[in-house]
Nucleic acid binder design. Structure first.
Lengths: 228, 228
DNA sequence: TAATAAAGTATTGTATGGAATCGTTTTGTG
DNA sequence: CACAAAACGATTCCATACAATACTTTATTA
């Protein structure tokens, strides 16, 4: 385990939530590695709290799919095979189609301009070559669409699916040295949304995700080949 | 609250899991009503356990979307508006499309025969007019498809979505006095799966769900009209 | 020596007590 | 009487102690 987890004792949130957020972030960042055991006393000491909130946080991680627990043997960070990843991506594809179709129906001037500014942010970040900002801007773009889809449950599910492939979020922009294509696709999506052409926008979205799928797949392949 | 929740202390499962299952079932059956508070000591006494496993079970229900908790004010059974229901159905529609398309790719003789026997069970139940068995058989039919889709994560999500509309599961067969249509659609789905005609089977599936949507919608409308 | 039993340690599971917080009722004051 | 303040009760939240279980190491026996 990568030393010092620290609570960003943000708040007046219940400790369990703070612990939950902390552990989730650690898992997503890879500080807690897949397969690593989540031992209560250990974590409790590291975070300076008792076992109780740790246990509750673990129950939450469990339901989120980020941890797996075997009764009386404890929890560990969930592992993911390539098949798992592919399954997740498949679902995301289906749900992103739904999201963009709904977004298309609900499109407003305001959303369009939000999408445009996300594109600008993307372009700026790409010009500066700042991968972190690029990913951020891309997320923002898609989040506008999710919001426009006006289906909170859908948003939660997609968010959760994204979480499960969070580790690979940089890879697909890293590999796509030319961001031109992504930008192009974003532009096309906006155009489609403006025209209200669901079918068109749906197709673009599929193609758009397909790139990501490819990139992630390559990374995994590499990992599974090298790692034991 | 409808008196005596009882633990079906099935097992050597951790108490939290037994409690979780018990509470979930109670919520799904409507014994714990939407909006009803889930108070720790209260439940602990009723189930004859301490507060600890209750709390952990509540954290799990929370992540499942069956309970909502406000920090320091406790948890309550999640309420659902018509909009929520519609959102859920929309997602199910998208995911059932994915499931049936994948099932189509993976179809085998064995699955086909499982589907056929589910249909027979459905027909028998329908002839006897046993609503409970009808629903059971219908579930079985669709579960075969989910299994054939070979995507465990998809299955979990769909299962969760179904949970959220569990209360209404009887309504749509109750309303559809003529089960002939359902049977007809099931038959068409099987035919499509045998031919491996994804597009066709996809369309049937959408239509098939649409009936359910209508029935559920009617029920909700009635409720929201009457109830406060 | 190999296999098995026994003892000891580490870790999870459950119960319980005390502190903090939220609501409600009661009291006090203009 | 109206309204603020204070006291009380209920409930969540967290910590901790004890019990049960799983794992590891040591000891015992064939």
């Amino acid at each position: 385990m990568k030393e010092d987890l620290k609570l960003d004792t943000d708040a007046f949130l219940p400790l369990r939530d703070v612990v939950f957020n902390t552990l989730r972030d650690s898992i997503l960042k890879g500080e807690l590695e897949p397969g690593e055991r989540l031992m209560e006393i250990h974590l409790a000491n590291k975070l300076g709290v008792s076992r109780t909130p740790i246990r509750e946080a673990i129950r939450m991680l469990e339901q989120e799919g980020l941890a797996v627990t075997i009764p009386r043997k404890g929890a560990q960070v969930a592992k993911m095979t390539e098949k798992d990843l592919q399954d997740v991506l498949e679902i995301r594809d289906a749900l992103d189609e739904l999201a963009v179709l709904n977004a298309c129906k609900n499109m407003t001037e305001d959303y369009i301009s939000q999408l445009r500014s996300s594109m600008v942010a993307f372009k700026n970040a790409a010009d500066r070559g700042n991968v972190r900002d690029i990913v951020e801007a891309d997320e923002q773009f898609h989040n506008v669409i999710y919001k426009a889809a006006d289906n909170p449950k859908l948003m939660v599910i997609i968010q959760n699916l994204k979480e499960q492939m969070y580790r690979y979020r940089y890879e697909y922009v890293k590999d796509n040295a030319n961001y031109a294509q992504i930008l192009q696709e974003h532009a096309e999506i906006i155009a489609g949304l403006e025209k209200g052409d669901g079918e068109y926008v749906k197709e673009i979205m599929h193609a758009h995700l397909e790139n990501q799928v490819e990139a992630v797949r390559d990374v995994i392949r590499g990992q599974e080949g090298s790692a034991k």
